[in-house]
Structures are given as C-alpha cells and as structure tokens.
Amino acid sequence: MIRIEGLTKHFKKVQALKGIDLHVMEGELFAYLGPNGSGKTTTIRILTGLSKPTSGDAYLHGFHILRETLQAKRQCGLVPQSINLDHELTVYENLNIHGKLFQMPRRVRSERIEEMLHYVDIADRRSTPIKHLSGGMKRRVMIARALMHAPKILFLDEPTVGLDPKIRRRIWSLVKKIQQNGSTIFLTTHYIEEAEFLAQRVAFLDEGRIIALDKPQNLMDRLGKWAVDKIVEGEMETTYHASREGANAHILRQVGSLSVRRVNLEDVFISVTGKKVQP
C-alpha cells in the first residue's frame, strides 16, 4: 500500500531523511514515532506531494509519487499538523472546495459532504464559519475533509497535538473507526500512548533514520514486561524485568525511592536512542 525505498531529503546543510525503507500494508494503522525534528513530517510531506525527495522512491497504492503524481495524490488524504482550513468559509464550503479540487461531480460531492459531516459528528455545524469552531472541531473537520474523496490511505500528522485529553480520546476513537472501515492509516505522533493505543505497527524515527520497527507489543517484550524506576542523584534509572516477581525481587535489593510499572513504548525508544520521544 505504501512502499518507501531509500528515501532521503536534504535541506541545504541539514539531512532530514537519511535513507528510509518502509512498507505499510493495506488496512494497517501504522505509527511513525519520533521526537520533533526527527523527520516525521518531512516523510509525510514527501509522500503527499508537498515536498520533493532528494533521492529514493515511494509508491502509494502502486503509484510512484513523482512519476505518477496526480494518481498518487488521489490515493491519499492528508490531515496536516497545523490547522489549514479556510477560516472565512463555513464547514460545508471547506468540504465543498476540497471535493472540487478532487474533481468530484456535484451530486457525489453533496452526498459525500453529508456523509462525512455525520461521520465526524459535526453535521449541526455545517453552516458555521471555521473561525467559530473549537480546536477539536476543527480537527474533526480536517479529518472529514481528508476523507471526502474516499482515499485509500490517510496521513495523519500529529492529529491530536494541542488538544485536551478528552478531545484527544475522541479523535482516537474516530481514527480507529476509519481504520475499521478499511483505510490504511499512516500516523505520526510524539505521544507515546497514542501510538500504543492505536497502532498495529510502529516505526521509531530518530535523526532521519528508522531505528526500530515492529508491533508495539513485540518491541516492548524485547525489554521485558515490567520496569522499575529509581531516582539516583536526580536522574531516573530504569531496569526491565520479565516478570512482576523479578521486578519485586529487584526492588527488595535496592535502597531509596522506587516505583514499578508496565514497560511502555517510551522505554523502548529510550533504550534504543538514549533520549525521550517527548520534545
């Protein structure tokens, strides 16, 4: 569904992507995880035609992003990190313009707008100008817009950034629903719990390279099931254990303030890179 081969991107002296190879399968919800500046957005921008790669190839549903640009673009919907709606226009008008840009016939367009307004539960706001909507509603409009032309692949670039936890959960439910309806979803995030909750597979990106790629559970299992955190001279030290008993036994041998918890994806990232995912 998404195939990336040796993708690189240079911005003057900065090498944003250093050779990405990746294959995302049809119907998969794939999370692309990494700290700010790791190359997540650059990858999405290249795949969706907003930026050109320096070298390498990428295919969306079999269409090469540079040689068959228009066909490749038809395969995907994009929800970018920043709100990019027309604030002067209403919800309906924003979706309508999108439908026109994707050359949808008038009748199909009208039907699809109604469908999408109900799908993201914003039908009662169809005539509201975007400038009068809350941040969460704007995100839902952006998701509705990205789904307007029924894309096979949906790119979500940090879809919940800046949203409160309640709204974030609502967006997650929506993303799950979209995936259950058969779409392939490529999600970038620096929220560990978002990737853990949503993704079937996760790629860790750091300084333009994929440093780990697997199912979240497999990645975590490599470290162990349980983590024990201990603060030593102001620094957190974490040890990993296969069982709760093992973790408890370790705690008994230690002195000081300790806590035990389940291993999460952040532990995996820290163990691979030595740094946190959160910016």
Binding site: Q71, L78, I83, H98, L101
Partner: peptide, 18 residues
C-alpha cells in the same frame, strides 16, 4: 495569507491538480 497564515496552499499542493 492563504500560504503563510491559513496554510491553505498545502491543501492545493496535496490535491491532484497541476
């Protein structure tokens, strides 16, 4: 305004139009 402020230019660039 569409490009720097509202970022609508990205919507055009991501659309299948020449």
């Amino acid at each position: 305004i569409a490009r720097f402020y509202w970022r609508i230019f990205e919507e055009f660039q991501a659309a299948p139009i020449r």
